[in-house]
């Protein structure tokens, strides 16, 4: 139905008045302050990224100028970094390590979390507390035992050596356990009656129901490993085994740090993290939407 143009004149003004006030217009001082705070927060978040890109477009002599817009913008740094064979290897190393570690975490954390959540066995609580308590030990304390262990197993300077401490995390286990708590036992019992074995129930019924948690965990683990610095620095020796953060820190020489190259490498290395985030973020949002529906 369309409204006829000859609507009685009296109706028009009220309708227009209602439409005239745009929804987003700030209504009072409190709202303006809130917006300003959010704006400031946004600037604070975006500045390092803008500055990173700005620096990557500068010539070395301009790096210590704080101006945001380079005087003579150049893509020379990008050409240099991409043509330099080392960066390519670091990128591949980082990718292999982050992807494998993420997949392992998704599998192992959820398997252990599911078991701790849905099975009743003696010592269950104790195991859970033991896993949680490892969260209290700082990485700095662990690197020496890890190193000695890697050394005795011959894992120094290998992918396995870089990855093994992070293949399963207490945080991920805890996160997954908490999410499995929200899966009603009815689903699991229904599947049991339908003839699935316990492993199939975990994989076919429980896992699809915690997709949002898996997506969140995937983002955490991927980013954590992509940006990991301390342990890869310690366990790797040869330049070919470096990950991006370790490799980038080595740009420059004893007297001068090549910030423009580091920033260029950093800018390139944010691309995979953006892709991972964009892929999994949709699952997170969908998860929130699904959770909002009854049943």
């Amino acid at each position: 139905m369309t409204i006829a143009p000859d609507v009685p004149a009296g109706i028009r003004p009220t309708t227009d008045a209602a439409l005239a006030a745009p929804k987003g217009k700030p209504k009072n001082l409190g709202q303006i302050i809130r917006w300003l705070l959010l704006f400031a927060g946004g600037i604070l978040m975006i500045m390092p990224i803008v500055y990173m890109i700005s620096t990557s477009l500068k010539w070395p002599h301009e790096v210590y100028n704080v101006n945001l817009i380079p005087e003579e913008p150049t893509i020379e740094n990008y050409t240099y970094v991409l043509e330099d064979g080392r960066f390519y290897w670091w990128f591949v190393n980082s990718l292999i390590i982050a992807v494998i570690t993420t997949i392992c975490n998704l599998l192992f954390d959820s398997l252990v979390g599911y078991t701790l959540c849905k099975f009743r066995f003696p010592g269950r609580q104790l195991v859970f507390i033991a896993i949680l308590s490892t969260l209290m030990i700082p990485t700095e304390m662990l690197v020496i035992p890890w190193y000695l262990m890697s050394q005795s197993f011959g894992w120094l300077d290998t992918y396995w050596g870089i990855m093994f401490p992070g293949l399963m995390t207490a945080f991920g286990t805890f996160l997954m356990k908490q999410f499995f708590e929200s899966v009603p036992d009815d689903f699991i019992e229904a599947a049991r009656i339908d003839g699935l074995n316990e492993l199939e129930i975990w994989w076919k019924v429980a896992m699809p129901l915690v997709k949002p948690a898996l997506a969140a965990l995937a983002i955490f683990v991927f980013l954590g490993n992509w940006t990991a610095f301390l342990w890869p620095l310690i366990v790797t020796n040869s330049v070919d085994m470096y990950t991006i953060p370790v490799g980038l820190s080595g740009f420059g020489d004893e007297v001068d740090v090549a910030w423009e190259l580091i920033m260029t490498g950093a800018a390139i290395s944010t691309i995979p993290t953006l892709i991972v985030f964009l892929i999994f973020q949709r699952f997170i949002i969908r998860g929130v939407v699904m959770a909002g529906l009854k049943g």
Partner: peptide
Amino acid sequence: MVFQNYAIYP
């Protein structure tokens, strides 16, 4: 078995 919460896989 039919459950109170249906338990149909979403």
